[in-house]
């Protein structure tokens, strides 16, 4: 409502400011110590030194990657939790993660997953196919959708595991992808997945208002004049695009999609458009903070970011289970 706008906008601006700080930190902090003045010069007075190269070719792309992947995971989590009215849903529940993992394993077994971009395409295709399968089985109700997603995920995970046990080199290749990380993934071209994420984020804002009616239940949304079938389909397409692209780029970092919508929901107080906006800022903050943590936590080297987000997300998940429990399922 009109009276809420200043408070909500102020909160969003504060979150954006925090994101800016975290992004600057993401460019500044790393295993190689670089003086702040040198960081500034990397942009203002580029000389092509090692430090400048690290800043411009590694840390900046990695930070941008983190922002878009974090926003995509947060937004897709918020969308799927809203649509299924299930606070424990996350994008992986539609089979996105298992589908991507299976495709990479299968591709590896068939000798197709040689390059990083081949892996990226395999992962994305696997995500999309898995969701299509889940949707065709479970489209009649949110509960069926979730059950179909969980069932397919288990089957695909089992098949993937079987392939990895039988084929050691598939296992080796999968290990790198499966940890979920931003490190080492900033070097390849991500133009297409990042563009897809950007467009999907804008579209996610556009479905937020119809979802505002949808959360009152499908009957109410329908009699309020909503296009319920169209909205549901749009949400599923967007979740697949966002989570599929994010997973393809950075591997499975599922906790962001699970926990960020919980935090954002407290702030949004029932408004889906604001929920979407908050998740798109808080998701990148969590991912970048985790990524910075992954660089500095161990003196010997990097911890994969998914390990750090899980570390931060674990307690939040336990809190959510205690708070909502089985009643919401």
């Amino acid at each position: 409502m009109r009276t809420d706008l200043p408070a909500r906008a102020a909160l969003l601006l504060a979150a954006l400011a925090l994101l800016a700080v975290v992004a600057v930190a993401g460019v500044s902090v790393g295993t190689r110590a670089i003086a702040p003045a040198e960081i500034w010069r990397a942009f203002a007075d580029y000389a092509g030194s090692d430090d400048h190269l690290i800043i411009r070719d590694v840390r900046v792309p990695r930070t941008i990657l983190g922002i878009l992947v974090g926003a995509a995971l947060g937004a897709s989590g918020a969308l799927i939790q809203t649509l299924t009215r299930n606070p424990l849903a996350e994008p992986g529940i539609l089979g996105v993660t298992a589908g991507a993992g299976f495709a990479i394993n299968l591709g590896g077994a068939l000798g197709l997953a040689g390059s990083q971009s081949a892996q990226l395409m395999l992962a994305f295709a696997g995500s999309v196919l898995a969701v299509l399968l889940v949707y065709s089985v479970g489209r009649t109700s949110p509960l069926r959708l979730v059950l179909a997603g969980v069932a397919l995920s288990s089957v695909l995970a089992g098949l993937s595991l079987g392939m990895r046990l039988m084929l050691p080199d598939v296992f080796d290749r999968f290990r790198f992808w499966s940890v979920g990380a931003l490190a080492g993934r900033e070097q390849m071209s991500h133009t297409i997945p990042l563009l897809a994420i950007g467009i999907a984020l804008v579209a996610a804002m556009a479905v937020a208002r119809p979802l505002n009616a949808m959360v009152l239940g499908e009957q109410v949304a329908h009699t309020l004049g909503g296009h319920t079938a169209r909205t549901k389909l749009a949400v599923l397409v967007l979740v697949t695009l966002l989570a599929g692209a994010a997973t393809a780029v950075a591997g499975p970092i599922t906790f962001v999609g699970l926990m960020i919508p919980h935090l954002a929901r407290r702030l949004a107080a029932g408004s889906i458009p604001w929920l979407m906006a908050y998740t798109m800022v808080l998701g990148p903050i969590l991912l970048l903070v985790s990524d910075i943590g992954s660089r500095v936590l161990l003196p010997t080297g990097e911890v994969p970011v998914a390990v750090v987000t899980a570390f931060l997300g674990g307690p939040v998940l336990i809190w959510a289970v205690r708070r909502y429990g089985a009643a919401s399922l």
């Binding site: 409502m1 009215r85 109410v220 408004s271």
Partner: peptide, 15 residues
Amino acid sequence: LVAPENIVVRRLVAR
């Protein structure tokens, strides 16, 4: 009917 969580009365009515 089941209301969404965390929603105050006037915001639900506004829907």
